[in-house]
Design a protein around this nucleic acid. Structure first.
Lengths: 128, 128
DNA sequence: TTGACATATGCCCATATCGGCATATACTCA
DNA sequence: TGAGTATATGCCGATATGGGCATATGTCAA
């Protein structure tokens, strides 16, 4: 198997910097026609179209025909999944003390191999 | 150019589901030896080692030799970048009214091409 | 209808991927 | 020293990528 397609996941779609740029732009400027994005980001038009295609397929943007131009609109709700996942780790950078405590506990657990805990976590991960 | 290397970015590293599983596991169970991860996730050992290699190179985990096993520890601080980026879009799913308002404003702006706004946003994006 | 404009697509290339398998490296203990 | 365990690494194949370029599609305007 090769790498997962960029259209499989919001995570994969968002891994490309230029795609993130496009999303940032749409968030800042509101719905944009392709041409506007091309000019704003200084990218060749086919590239923009292709990136928009990926974003569209993943549901991160939606299109609306307006005459001969197509206006792309951000659908940021899809980013929420990524946000939620990262939020899981929030405690690791917000409370320094907590982090130290966690490390200590974890180190203690690591002495005996934490198979049970690990397996439980894995089950939880697979469920998500 | 092909797709960016998975070791370029936290975004790219995290695009792989199994890598996310490993991170989830380390967050839940604390530092783990490779063998523990192998058993917990049911993946072949070389695969786990390679994924850990990617995570290591991006700084998402750190290693510590302990006898003949290597204990990997989560360094979640690196995930904060992703968290911050997604947080930029938070307003789009938290307040429904805000979202509607934004759309309306944006639509209005879209009538005349929002080049100036777009360009400004692009500059801001490139800076980040 | 013809021409100009706005987007999308198709094709080619070089590249990096992930998985599987075999094997090298590193450490421990008898 | 030699066997056994724990990880890492190298090589292979199949695949999807992203950029560039040319071109097809679709739409408006005169």
């Amino acid at each position: 198997m090769a790498r997962a397609a960029t259209t499989t996941d919001v995570f994969n779609a968002v891994a490309e910097p230029r795609r993130r740029q496009i999303l940032d732009l749409l968030a800042a400027a509101g719905p944009c026609a392709v041409g506007a994005i091309v000019i704003a980001l200084g990218l060749p038009q086919p590239a923009v179209s292709k990136h928009l295609g990926v974003l569209r397929e993943v549901g991160l943007v939606s299109v609306e025909k307006h005459g001969q131009s197509r206006v792309y609109q951000l659908n940021a709700k899809e980013i929420q999944a990524v946000h939620e996942w990262t939020r899981t780790f929030e405690r690791f950078w917000t409370h320094k003390l907590d982090r130290i405590k966690h490390r200590a506990e974890a180190r203690a657990r690591a002495q005996g191999h934490p198979f049970a805990i690990a397996a439980a976590a894995a089950r939880k991960d697979r469920a998500s």
